[in-house]
Amino acid sequence: MIAIIDYGIGNLFSIYNGLKRVYDQPLLVTLDGVASLKDAAGIIVPGVGAFDDCARSFRPFAAIVIECIESGVPVLGICVGMQLLFEGSEEGSETGLGLIPGSVVRLPKTVRVPHMGWNNLAIQRPTQLLDGITERDYFYFVHSYHCVPRDAARVIASVDYGGALAAAVQRDNLFGVQFHPEKSSKKGLHILRNFAAIAQGT
């Protein structure tokens, strides 16, 4: 089972439906069902809107998700869900999970904010999550802040928007994508399929 954490921010309709297309056992997990995360083969941490709202709402899930990550369960943070993996954000005052050292900062002043629309990736290193993805493929981004890992080697793909920004990061079994795979048509579903394969160990 791959769990999508439903911590009360935004609708998870698209992530659930997108994952369902490529994998037959997605499960939305609310606080009531938090114990079931122990059985998850993979966990998706979504996130939209403001960093602080997400950080506060996610807090009750933090300990168990960190436990899962440490026991080797693949976890994928999407958009603000990726930003939560970092220590904190310029957007707010709440602390993040600090699982990837680094911070989240405002997009440069030289570009229109939010970064909204389809952009392509510059793959920084081959990894199973981005298997089959090339620099000719486009993904849907919508964000005003971007992640800056202290160790640049965490970036597995970057995106060009007023400079090279982190589009996807990895630390062992922990992944984050700034774009929305669930809104990126076929290629986005391809990434969800890759994550499902990682979760199933195939």
């Binding site: 309709f13 698209s14 439906n17 997108g18 297309r21 849907y140 809104k183 990126s184 048509s185 986005g188």
Partner: peptide, 10 residues
């Protein structure tokens, strides 16, 4: 709802 279950774009 009907669209969002088939179409994965914004």
């Amino acid at each position: 709802a009907k669209t969002a279950s088939n179409v994965f774009i914004p």
